[in-house]
Simulated assay, not measured.
Amino acid sequence: MEQPLILDRYRPLADLGSGGHGDVVLAFDTKMARRVAIKRLPLPLDRMGRPLAKAGLAEARTAAMLNHPSIVTVHEWDTDSDEAFIVMEAIEGSSLADILDDTGEPLTLDETAAVVDAVVSALTYAHDNGVLHLDLKPGNVLVNPDGRVKVADFGVSALTDASGYAHGTAGTIGYMPPEQLRGQALDERTDVWALAALVYELLTGANPFDADTVEGSLFKIEVAEVPAPSEFQPGLSAALDDVLLAALAPDAAERHPDVIAFRAALSRHLGDSDAGRSSLADVVGSLVGEDADEFAREPLTPLGLWDRLARFSSA
């Protein structure tokens, strides 16, 4: 039985997975003849237990609609009685989380440099527009088969906190600094901390705050109980250790003031970003496989696109 259209426009094709904030489906846009990814999230409730009025979602909508080459494009944002729908470009490729998991290896210095350049570019644009990400992690950074890196899920934390009393706590343990966990005031240095945790994981293959329990992770975050990255990967320099550990300081005042300053301190200890993009393209190409290559090579006619989408999503 054919599923009903989402928002009277998008035909569901396949489930792409679930996360802490909501479900994602691959869908076909019947008006624009293109495939999209749709994130469905429950609307936050007000203090009376009612879905928050649309007026209260303005901040989340603004954050989600940022337009930048290194940010996943959001085509549409809408709500019904109890759900929000974020309609995004569908990215062929893999998340950094998938790459780390599937390869079982950390990224190279070149590959990490490529990721850092793209993510810092995206975050700088967002920060210049008054938007913090607040949930930066490997699963929210995507790499397509030509090695381009894009950041997803701007605005999702803002949506989750749109009721006005969660104060940015809707992130992911291991990627939230102490001030975010405590519900305190946040600024660019909050995303600096998360980016440092991300880079640490890319270079070592492990999140520095992993523990057997949530309480154990929270303790490590609060007291900055972080081993030097070179303890996991002896080839990393002591200077690189110093940069990452400074950015992971529990006190925001001790971190780099913004992501540009963090990149300036970090980049001299990484590799070549152009070589890294080429290497990431090879890695993602091997993970995505020949089906995606065939999909990308075929001509984009409306009828042919629909046929290929149905075949690709069922492969």
Score class of each variant (00 low, 15 high):
L7F: 02
L7V: 07
L7Y: 07
R9D: 12
R9M: 05
R11P: 00
G20K: 00
A27E: 00
A27F: 01
K31M: 11
M32G: 04
V36R: 02
I38Q: 00
R40S: 11
R50I: 02
P51L: 01
E59C: 08
A60K: 00
M65W: 02
L66V: 12
H68N: 08
S70E: 08
T73L: 08
E76T: 10
S81W: 03
F85V: 09
E89S: 13
I91Y: 06
G93D: 07
S95R: 12
L96C: 07
I99P: 03
D101Q: 15
G104I: 09
E111G: 11
T112G: 11
D117N: 14
V120C: 06
L123Y: 10
A126S: 00
A126M: 04
A126L: 06
A126G: 05
D135S: 13
L136K: 07
V141S: 03
D146C: 14
G147H: 01
D153F: 09
V156Q: 04
V156D: 01
S157E: 11
S157M: 08
A158T: 11
G164R: 00
G171M: 01
G171D: 12
T172N: 00
I173A: 08
P177V: 08
E179C: 08
L186D: 03
R189D: 10
T190F: 06
W193T: 00
L195M: 14
E201W: 11
L202F: 12
L203E: 06
G205Y: 13
A206K: 15
P208C: 09
F209N: 01
F209Y: 14
E215N: 09
K220F: 07
I221A: 09
E222N: 12
E222H: 12
V223N: 11
A224M: 07
A228F: 10
P229C: 03
F232G: 10
L240V: 01
D241A: 07
A247C: 05
A252T: 11
E254L: 10
R255C: 14
R268H: 11
H269F: 03
H269M: 09
D272C: 10
G276Q: 05
S278E: 15
S279D: 01
L280F: 03
L280Q: 03
S286E: 14
R297L: 10
E298L: 15
L309C: 13
S313C: 06
